[in-house]
Simulated scan of single mutants.
Amino acid sequence: MKEEILLLKIHNAIKEGKDYYQSVQGNWKMNAKRIPSIKYVVGIDMQKVVCVFVPTEWHIIQEGPEKGRKYFVGVEASNEILLTMKTKDKQLLKKFGTGSAIAYTSISEVD
């Protein structure tokens, strides 16, 4: 199975006063089939990697206006992983489409 990194632009959530974890946690409109392959969730604020989390469980909202969106519960990644991602921020930013707040890349592309 391909191991992936979920990349999220979080500058709006940061402006609203959310911390890094609250900013990346959810609720994201994404393909549920990708969830098993996501090993890291990376938060990007103002074109810089600012945080990395390791999802331990995923949930899908079952009702209401957010129905179908996904969110995770997780832990902060090691400093080593954060530093690795920070050195690759230009490369990671290229993964986003125009106006998109969510993107994916494979771990092998970052190593």
Rank of each mutant, 00 (worst) to 15 (best):
L82D: 03
I35A: 14
I61T: 11
M46G: 08
Y21R: 10
I102K: 15
T56G: 08
I61C: 03
L7G: 06
R34H: 03
K18R: 12
G68E: 07
V54Q: 11
V42L: 04
E63A: 10
V50Y: 00
V73N: 14
A77S: 13
G17T: 03
E66Q: 08
H11Q: 15
I5W: 06
M85N: 06
T98E: 14
K88H: 12
K29N: 14
T105L: 04
I81W: 01
L92G: 07
E57Y: 03
Y20T: 06
P36H: 10
K95S: 06
V52N: 04
T87V: 04
E57G: 09
E3W: 01
N31C: 10
I61D: 05
K33D: 15
G99D: 07
C51V: 08
K29S: 15
E3N: 13
G64K: 05
N27H: 05
V52T: 13
D89L: 00
T87N: 15
F72I: 05
F72G: 01
V54W: 01
Y21C: 07
N27Y: 10
I14W: 02
P65D: 12
V73Q: 10
I61R: 11
N27C: 11
A101Y: 11
Q62F: 04
K9T: 02
F72S: 05
K70I: 15
K95N: 13
K67Y: 02
K33Y: 08
Y21K: 11
N27W: 09
T56P: 04
Q25F: 07
I5E: 05
K9V: 01
Y71G: 09
M85Q: 06
I107M: 05
G68P: 07
D19F: 04
Q22D: 15
I14V: 05
A103H: 06
Q47K: 15
E76I: 12
K29P: 00
M1C: 09
T56Q: 13
E80M: 13
T87P: 01
S37Y: 08
N27F: 08
A13G: 06
K9C: 00
G43W: 01
T105R: 00
R34E: 05
N79R: 12
A32T: 09
T105C: 14
H59C: 07
V54D: 04
Y40H: 13
C51F: 01
V49S: 02
Y104E: 01
K2P: 12
E3C: 00
T98P: 07
A101N: 15
V24M: 09
A77P: 06
T87H: 11
M85R: 03
K15A: 09
L8G: 05
S23N: 02
R69I: 05
K67Q: 15
G99F: 04
I38L: 08
G64E: 01
I81H: 00
N27A: 13
R69T: 12
T87S: 15
D111P: 03
R69H: 12
M1S: 14
K94H: 06
V54T: 12
Q62V: 08
Y20V: 02
L7D: 02
I10T: 11
K95R: 15
Q62N: 14
W58L: 01
R34N: 07
V54M: 09
K15S: 04
L82R: 00
K48I: 02
D19N: 15
Y21M: 10
I14M: 09
G43C: 00
N79Q: 14
M85W: 04
I10H: 07
G64H: 02
V24N: 10
Y104A: 06
K9F: 00
H59V: 06
N31P: 07
K33C: 10
S100F: 10
K95A: 08
E109S: 13
